[in-house]
Amino acid sequence: MSLQDVLNVTKILLQYLLPTLKIFGLTLLFSIPLGMVVAVLRRIRFWLVAKPVGFYILIMRGTPLMLQIITVYYAIPMLSQNSFPFLEHLLSFVDTRSNSYQFNALLVAFVLNYAAYFAEIFRGGIESIPQGQYEAAFSLGMTKMQTFFRIILPQVVKRILPASANEVITLVKDTSLASVIAYAEIFRKAREQMVTYSSLAPLFIAGVFYFVLNAVLTVLFSAAEKKLDYYQ
């Protein structure tokens, strides 16, 4: 491949940076709050809550994300066509022929998967805060909400930052799995270009894209960790 070819491929891939960032950004936006909810549910011992939540996390962490993406994408049209009337009714609001269906299915799979991982990180963080912090806040008359948001959460954020950085960085690379259902993002386009040019170079260029994104994120996370370094 000539330098001109490299520039051409880079230009093409650059156009698909936005779809990649869209999966990345929206997955974070929804999976972090959902992860918090799941983490809180995970602390409830009542079996009717504990068992389903435990099962959900087991499945999400125990099977490949690629499998989950394919399942969500193909299962919804199948279930909403020839199965029980109940399911049909339930899924009737999903228009599987619309333009946005592909992206929405993708997002559902990513959010469900990442929420499970974030939930476990949050749970670990919350459980690592000493009981004495709750007792001190309680004896000072603080409400449960005040205790959580003013005392517990700020300390949890500091403790889970390194583990969360790992997840976020993995997510950048995992967006390439969207190509499995032919969603047009960087990795999908790189493979097309690979065929066009009969060269591995387009894939390496895609690799550089992911690398640069993660380099930026790494710097941001280090800065955040440093900012929270003022206490132990």
């Binding site: 004495g132 912090q133 007792e135 001190a136 700020p154 300390q155 206490y231």
Partner: peptide
């Protein structure tokens, strides 16, 4: 408390 339990942050 015996172990103070100040808020470290």
């Amino acid at each position: 408390f015996q172990n103070f339990h100040l808020f470290p942050h």
